[in-house]
Amino acid sequence: MRVATIALHTFKESVRERVLYNLVVFAVLLTAAGILFGIISVGVKEIILINLGLASISVFGLLIAIFIGIGLVSKEIERRSIYSILSKPVMRSEFILGKYLGLLLTLVVNTAIMTAGLYLALFYEKRTLALSDLNVLGAVYFILLQLAVVVGIALFFSSISTPILSAAFTFCFYIIGNFLADIRWFGREAQNVFLERATALLYYLLPNFGNFNVITRVSHGEKIPGYLVVGNSCYALLYITILVSAAILVFEEREFK
């Protein structure tokens, strides 16, 4: 109950702080793309539109996840609003969980509106929607899973560090997480035992965001296999559980001087 109250409050705060204004930029982007597509041949138009739409959903979501996520806890401490929350019968774990779920709700709503916009643009271009277009939803789900992990990372760093450092760390994790397969390949090719082990450790320790990227496959009409959906869901859930638990553990010991 208290978790839900804090989550809804976090969502309301994001909306009031005009986070959803990014939707306007998204709408402008899709409209501009629609006009531009008038001069491109029919087959490629749809691929580009799906690619652009999903990439935008991912980038805008990522920006929100990082820039709101890094302030989730640190801003509360800095502004001392945490004093009046923790003096109520609210456990620190409830506060962290509420904050996490609140930002996740913001991202879900934001992504849902953008997805609806993407389908609208697709319908406008094709004058119809086919069953195969539902594949886009799979890609959107993977983007959400990725964002849920990024929020976890941002929340964890927000509990131990300043917003600027949290942003830097979260962004680094995201970048590394996108190139983990390449980093591991580099480690194998380097013919150096230390490098090979270090890159393998990174590969298994950090979340591999490359797993969630199916935008190109979906834009070319490929179906997302069921095992990937289940596998990615479990993979994301594992990281989210570890990150949120770590944030709670750190926050339980934190003093507010």
Partner: peptide
Amino acid sequence: VSVHARVGYLPENPYFYDHL
């Protein structure tokens, strides 16, 4: 923490969410 249900606290120089 359950005792907080029976008490109230005003912090020094309080700050509350100013969007509310």
